[in-house]
Design a protein around this nucleic acid. Structure first.
Lengths: 339, 339
DNA sequence: CAGGCGAAGGAAAGGGCTTTCCTTGTAGCC
DNA sequence: GGCTACAAGGAAAGCCCTTTCCTTCGCCTG
């Protein structure tokens, strides 16, 4: 691998000159030397060692983002918004998938610190796990103490800037849509209960139930993995427990799609037999049959705002921004059949 | 930010000792010193600077992968297989999204080289673009000349190990399935023609047509972006040009879903009016209505094999491995209605 | 013509870590 | 007791760059 010194030797100049030319420093260099150096760079196919540069330079230009899984559309959207701002600001972003494993999340914070990132953005849901939250906080505090910037998406009980998706509000809106149509037997297909996203959305649902003089008994809430197969399994369990269900609220679109699949397998049609609603408005929501009624969160914007907060100068007190939720009405929700 | 030297000072030992303990070197260190050092590490929240480590160490442990877009399920699957092997082998992987921009692809090769990666895996489709291929080859050659390893997924005319998805074969299989049912008016929803993936799949389709004494005239092939909306637009164009179409072959599942959407908008039902088939067997293929008949490629395995090739010692001549395609029969393909 | 100034390039000091090679001290052996 | 041998820790030489001074030189000014 050719080094700066090799180039300098070949061009017959000092390392300083090569560095200045390669990096386009404002210092004036004669055209002749520039020419020679550039030729040497070409001939040797020289590429600067990024690690040496990072070590020698003082300022950082990389930010890290920890998500559950970028291939999940929810995080893909957030990441897209984030990347856009990052590019605009000349920052590189390192993406880390925690796959919802708290330990891995901890490791990644360490890794990003090791890589000297300028900011860490935590985009995954928070966990109801005091021990974990405490150690995560400790790690982040150590990072922030040395000038690192942190921002989070969602509820984390972390001292840092945050963008809050309106999960509770979204739950309330979609719940109201369902209850106001007259549904009385409503099942909820929920994600693991240790995720704050789950409890927040559920809380909104409960508030909507109360407002409509309905209740959401525990037996009508099935917890499962936060994906299509989890949704399918939870729906099956709900249906077995109460065949009279007229509506199913899934806590995200993937689970709603799983619900659709189970319903189809059982010969129940949507929405005439059972209504189904989702959450997140993933792109695929408009392409399933029936098209999914769901809650839209401005995910791209959430990502963009999270990184913007992280890149701006820190304030005295942590800033918290809300991102509004909105119900997208499609075909999968209808009034229950008259009994 | 605490450094190794800070830890050494605090523990009252040399930097060498700290390094040995932190990295678990085989050299024996007394329990007492180990104890003191570990305590200092804790107290200072020390995390080694990854760049300094990479600079000081000789061996590389990171690999880079360039894909079109990880949030595309096709690449998400490949990446998953790749990540699995990487973790098993103790390697970190850097993911780069080229968004199908050749220039960005070039830049990323440079960036990965700068980051001293051990191997580069090119997972995107090749391009029919001699100028680009040439400069990419030059960059990769320079990288390989200094000990870098390269492997590619798909056809790239690159001197390196390769895993070849059976695109031609897959095209042939799905084409045969369509033609053997008696379809005579078959439209193709194709991706941009400069992608080798497109031409390979098309070639298979043409071979199937010949075998069944049919043809695939140019007017029945519509090229568009390789995504859902591209598929929807191309389908509309095809239908406008020839309303008698009885089958549509989309070159990937996203485009097939777009086709389904256009068909639905026009009140045509699938498969009774028009059959639709896709390619890639993305997870969502079984969840749309009707369930999509498509071609499965062992994507996770392709990713795993690509990185395995890259990590193994290079052979004299580049190795090329084939990955078989298989038709997955679901509901979106049926015989054409008798006229 | 001395003195000063600005332009152009180089020397060298880091930046934080790994690792080889040394030094020191102790145990073991005849 | 004198010697070897080995265990345990440290000194210091890199790894490859950036950047801050310095030096040199030609030119202008008074």
């Amino acid at each position: 691998m050719a080094t700066l010194a090799d180039v300098a030797r070949r061009a017959g100049v000092s390392a300083a000159t090569v560095s200045r030319i390669v990096n386009g420093s404002p210092k004036i260099v004669s055209d002749e030397l520039r020419e020679r150096v550039l030729r040497a760079v070409q001939e040797l196919q020289y590429v600067p060692n990024a690690h040496a540069q990072l070590l020698a330079r003082s300022h950082r230009t990389t930010v890290g983002v920890i998500v559950h899984d970028v291939s999940d559309p929810y995080f893909a959207e957030i990441t897209r918004g984030l990347q856009r701002v990052a590019s605009e600001q000349g920052r590189l972003v390192i993406i880390c998938n925690s796959y919802r494993d708290p330990d891995r999340e901890l490791e990644y914070v360490e890794l990003l610190r090791a890589h000297q990132v300028e900011a860490i953005i935590l985009a995954g849901s928070g966990y109801h796990d005091p021990a974990f939250t405490k150690s995560l906080n400790a790690k982040l505090a150590a990072y922030m103490a040395t000038g690192g910037r942190v921002s989070v998406v969602g509820r984390h009980k972390l001292a840092g800037d945050a963008v809050m998706p309106a999960n509770e509000e979204g739950g309330y809106l979609i719940g109201s849509a369902v209850f106001s149509l007259g549904h009385r037997h409503v099942g909820v297909v929920a994600a693991p209960r240790q995720l704050t996203t789950t409890t927040d959305r559920l809380a909104g649902l409960r508030r909507a139930a109360r407002d409509h003089r309905r209740s959401l008994p525990a037996r009508r809430i099935a917890y499962a993995e936060f994906d299509r197969d989890g949704g399918a399994a939870a729906t099956a369990a709900l249906l077995d427990a109460d065949p009279k269900l007229t509506a199913i609220v899934a806590l995200n679109d993937s689970m709603a799609i799983g619900a659709l699949s189970t319903l189809r397998d059982r010969g129940l049609s949507v929405p005439s037999d059972v209504s189904v609603v989702g959450f997140d408005d993933m792109p695929i929501a408009r392409d399933v049959t029936p098209r999914l009624t769901t809650v839209r969160l401005p995910l791209v914007e959430i990502g963009a705002r999270a990184i913007t907060l992280a890149l701006e100068a820190p304030q005295h007190s942590p800033r918290v921004e809300e991102a509004a939720a909105e119900v997208i009405h499609r075909e999968s929700l209808a009034a229950p059949r008259a009994e």
